[in-house]
Each structure stands twice: as C-alpha cells, then as structure tokens.
Computed example of a mutant assay.
Amino acid sequence: MTTTVSNKPSAPRVLAVLVAVITVFGALLADFVIPASAAQHLRNDAWPPHAKFHDAQYISMSILLGAVALTLLLRRGGGSRSRVWTACAILATPWLGLLAAMLFPGTAVHDPEFADIRIIGLHPQVLLALILLALLAVAVALRARQRN
C-alpha cells in the first residue's frame, strides 16, 4: 500500500515555513542591515573582530538552517510528518542556541552601552526566540494529530 502525501499547505507546514523565513532573514536584518540594531552587533565599533566573526557565523548559520528547512518543507512531500518534524528540529537549533548562550558565564543579551529594552520583562531577542519555539511546538503537535 502506498501512502500519498498532499502537497497542499497545512497549518503545521505554514507555521514551520513562517519560522523558516524569519530564521533566514531575521539575524541578517537585525545584526547587519537595520541600522539601529546593526549598530549593536556587526556594525558596533566597540566589538573586536573576533566577536564580529562569531556574529557573522550566527547569521550565516541561521540562513543555512532556514534554507535547509525551507527546502524540506517546500519540496513535494514537504508536508509529511517526518519532513515537518525534521524541519522544526532544524529551525529550533539557532533559537535554542540563542537561549542557551545566556547560560554561559560572562554573556549578556545586550551590551551595556545600549538601553536594556524589555517587552513583558524579556529582551526582544529572547521574546522572539520563545515565540518562534512555541510556533514550532504547535506545528509539531498539530502534525502529530494528523493521520498522514
């Protein structure tokens, strides 16, 4: 018996694609392109070259992981349970890494020369990571409930 996998958009797939697009473009825009936030990252003259290297590494990694996830999700059969789950695991990687980085000694989510902006008590990057991880968890849970 063969199983056919629909290529039509499903809620889990749409959620994962949304997170993938944000993952592809988010760090690049925030850390390099948008002047106000880039001044706190790659365009921060106070940062040593090695710190800028690691931010560029994170930007590149996010683009690559998002692109791999998009490839899994947008190809024929991208709505299959295994593809959605794999894409969600891949997409969770940079966002879990962002949260885990706060656990290392001497790290901070913002440099002291910049205002410590908070939204509902959280730094915007942390809030975004939690929202995107929640969307991925919803996508996985919804996909688990579907038959195919």
Rank of each mutant, 00 (worst) to 15 (best):
E113C: 03
L91V: 05
V138I: 15
A46M: 12
L99N: 08
Q146H: 15
H50W: 12
S80H: 04
K8F: 15
Y58R: 12
L122H: 07
R13S: 01
V126Y: 08
L98Y: 08
T71K: 00
S10A: 10
L70N: 10
H110I: 01
A69I: 04
I63T: 14
C88F: 01
L130Q: 10
S60H: 14
N7K: 05
L128C: 10
I59G: 10
H54Y: 08
L122W: 07
I120H: 12
L122C: 02
I119M: 10
L28S: 11
L29S: 15
R81D: 15
T107F: 05
S82P: 05
A56C: 13
N44A: 05
L64D: 15
T93Q: 05
I120F: 15
R83T: 03
P35W: 08
A51C: 04
L72M: 13
I59D: 03
Q57I: 14
P9K: 05
P9D: 13
V138R: 03
A11E: 01
Y58N: 13
A36W: 02
L72V: 07
V109N: 01
M61F: 14
I131G: 09
R81Y: 14
A30N: 12
H110Q: 05
S10N: 04
S60D: 14
A46S: 14
F32E: 11
I22K: 00
G66W: 03
I22V: 11
F114Y: 08
G121E: 11
